[in-house]
């Protein structure tokens, strides 16, 4: 008896039984079930392990943590002083637009 002589329904029944025995999903029409998104391992935990842990020491963090130490950030002081001078010369940042009409964006050529 060749394969051609077996009824399609019998073949389908055989497949169903085979799926039951080997505990696989019976999906004769090969419909996408999205099961692969549930089956795959989560990649986040291993992704987090890629870089070695590091602790960045910053002056701002230090000042926040120990306010009683009176740490002075010299670069920040210089920046603020320069900013003040620039503002006096009228070179400061422009005022925020209150409405859409005030904004320079609306006047921009396209």
């Amino acid at each position: 008896m060749t394969m051609a002589n077996i009824a399609p329904s019998a073949l389908a029944a055989l497949t169903r039984v085979r799926c039951q025995i080997f505990q696989t999903a019976y999906n004769p029409a090969s419909i996408r079930t999205g099961a692969k998104y549930l089956r795959k391992r989560l990649r986040g935990p291993s992704m987090m392990k890629y870089y070695p842990p590091y602790e960045q020491l910053s002056l701002a963090k230090l000042m926040k943590q120990y306010p009683e130490w009176d740490v002075v950030d010299e670069d920040e002081q210089i920046r603020l002083r320069d900013l003040d001078q620039r503002k006096k010369r009228g070179k400061g940042a422009p005022k925020k637009a209150k409405s859409m009409e005030d904004s320079r964006r609306s006047k921009r050529k396209r």
Binding site: I31, R32, T33, G34, A35, Y37, L38, K40, L42
Partner: peptide, 12 residues
């Protein structure tokens, strides 16, 4: 995201 992916890709 996986849960949404599962629903979005499930043809049933």
């Amino acid at each position: 995201r996986r849960a949404y992916l599962y629903v979005a890709r499930d043809q049933r």
